[in-house]
Design a protein around this nucleic acid. Structure first.
Lengths: 227, 227, 227, 227
DNA sequence: AGTTAAACGAGACGGTACGTCATGTCTTATT
DNA sequence: AATAAGACATGACGTACCGTCTCGTTTAACT
């Protein structure tokens, strides 16, 4: 009897990972898991999420729309949030690779732009649902962090470390705190203020972050001109 | 048929405000709204929220625990989130008044400490539930922002404006962006990273915020001793 | 919280009986039980039983057909067999009163005719379902015996006692055994042999019962003209 | 695609019959039917029937307990009732042979005793389940009658015919009716009255059956000493 | 004092979804 | 070819809540 715990990173993936260890063959005894069903389920939830928040979608409805038995869903996913996450993961555009422009400020800005542009897209609206779900289901939270947030944080971390090495960012800062300072303002605006996060605001953020809020710390080094 | 819209700021409050305009008298014809019931309902949800997230609490359960008819709840609140918010509002400790220490940095730090300390407290855990609810119910979101977030933001805003006047913060920055930069990192850490936010981290944040990430922008002006 | 045990003779009846004791008023606190729903449920199962055996009817289907919530059924009846029994009871034609023809043999014959005629009717087909259910659910068995079988047995008992008094049946026989001998053959034919039980067979049964199987016990006393 | 109709007398038997025609060798192309599986299935259902009625046993459970694929059961039996009947048939003690005591009354009594003693035994409780099943599944009914009831009826018939020849039972009676009168009262008591059927009651039945209910039809011919 | 109109507790109701279980079919790998 | 293992669509299970709707009772304010 399989357990959800063992498959919480869910579905097909689990088998593929196993496969990569034991090589190619499926190895099971009984009937193989149906790819069509999985596909149908993930498509169904994507469509449904276009119309309403995850909270208002029932597993019953997903099954109905996908032409699939409820039990099949319960078997492979612990809750609808995980189904949504799987569906979301498939759609996830590849991350913007870190270009090394020589300027950490520019690199940060580019990463934030790409993230928050995605956030504003239809698929991206899901992010809010996921973050809401994180507040309720700790296990989901950790999965989501691992799957979605960590990779992004990693990108920023690379830029950060590089900037420190180059002397663009002073050393000795608590890295976790700094990374919170980079992503935090954007999330705050979208989740809590629920205001749009346009390009200009991102620019301002990064700039202010680098140069600090202090009034003209030294000479004509005014941070503005951000042209 | 009364409408929730007219009472979305809920319960007793509505009547009191009305009263303050039309003077004292209750004015109704029939039986008065029962204070015991309201009290019982709010107490019940508080108790229930100690054990489980709002999502797992049903109106049925609240009514049962409060010894109250379900209809009474439906009559005065549009959803359980509003009940929770009312209950939460009653418990809400008064805000830390803004002390003017002369240093905006210190003032900010103090405000953030008090907010995030509260966040860590038992009642404060509710904040996560509310923020989750915000992502799903726009009307609730706006109510919650009005009731809880705005007053806090206002405090920070006052400090900010004063600091600009005094020349501690350079003018010309987009104020909304800056306020996001002040609260954002803390929320990010708690909601998304779900890591504790201890005093030291707050100090680091505010400090880095003021002095910027840049490496030794000018002369010996090393930004604090955070070496 | 009411219990099924307290209402196993089910539904409306329970209240009426109570009413007959405490006089008229319904006395409940909340909303009254809906007569339309009960009516709809009983009608629905009757209709369904025309098409298929009780076993193949689901509570879901009854509810659907009756336009009623499943919970309403579960609330008032412990299982679908009880619903069927209630529906059946309503349809139950009044019993054939015992006519005193002076001949116990004739009285018996008349009672058996009326019973087995009913058995052959559309409603009567249900009897087989009920007897099947009796073999599985002991509580239902006792209810069905009380409601349906006992009244019939009582009729026969009266005839029997009268016949003994009159000297038409010899005294000293175990009455229960004799009553089994009166009903048993008919049930056996219908339930187990599953052959039709026509009038002539009933006549033969009663006659043979009275006169015994022995060959011409005495003089020309040939047992009727059953040549 | 094999059909159940062709194997409704089920399981092993089917093969044996085939074998008896095509001689000894299994003759099939692929793998032989597994005797272990059949054995395991029949044992499993027997065990399960000790705990609960047939209705509450699922094919799934039988397969699980027998360590057998569900499909194997579906392949060889049309429904669980047939499985149960097969299992029951194996256990079935041989019938009590008809001893010719010279007295039809005594012979009847002996046969009835043996039947109803079996009925009271653990395996015999199954009879009730089977008779319930008969009321719902006509095909099963006919199979069960053929397999179980007919042989018993045949025994009684032999006694009956012999008694008529010998002049112990008067001729001209409808034999089917009389056989119903012999078995009917016992079944009635067990299935419908659900009262125990002890030896004495059987004696009384047979006696009353022979001598009739009439009061002292002639001279001192009192029907046994059943005073 | 009598009338009227809310507000209330209780709770029944038609629904919808829950998460589980069994059905009977089908597929895969093994024997 | 027959199995065991087991995935699958289907659909019923019995429970829990939803939000609405009577009920009968209680409590003011207005006759």
């Amino acid at each position: 009897m399989q357990e959800h715990v063992a498959q919480h990173d869910v579905g097909r993936e689990a088998r593929q990972r196993t496969a990569s260890v034991e090589c190619v063959e499926p190895k099971h005894r009984g009937r193989q898991r149906s790819e069509e069903s999985e596909e149908a389920i993930l498509s169904a939830i994507i469509q449904l999420l276009r119309d309403k928040p995850l909270r208002d979608i029932s597993i019953e409805e997903i099954a109905r729309k996908a032409g699939v038995g409820k039990a099949t869903i319960y078997k492979w996913w612990p809750s609808k949030a995980y189904v949504a996450l799987d569906a979301f993961s498939r759609k996830l555009g590849q991350m913007v690779p870190i270009r090394d422009t020589g300027s950490a400020e520019r690199d940060f800005t580019e990463q934030l732009h790409s993230l928050f542009t995605f956030f504003g897209s239809p698929e991206g609206k899901l992010l809010r649902q996921f973050i809401a779900e994180m507040q309720v289901d700790a296990e989901f939270a950790s999965l989501f962090r691992e799957r979605f947030l960590k990779p992004r944080r990693e990108l920023i971390r690379v830029i950060y470390d590089r900037a420190v090495e180059r002397g663009q960012i002073r050393p000795g800062l608590d890295r976790d705190v700094v990374l919170d300072m980079i992503y935090g303002p954007g999330f705050h605006r979208m989740l809590i203020r629920q205001a749009p996060l346009e390009r200009k605001a991102v620019d301002t953020m990064v700039s202010a972050l680098f140069h600090g809020l202090r009034n003209a710390p030294t000479r004509g080094n005014r941070p503005r001109r951000r042209s």
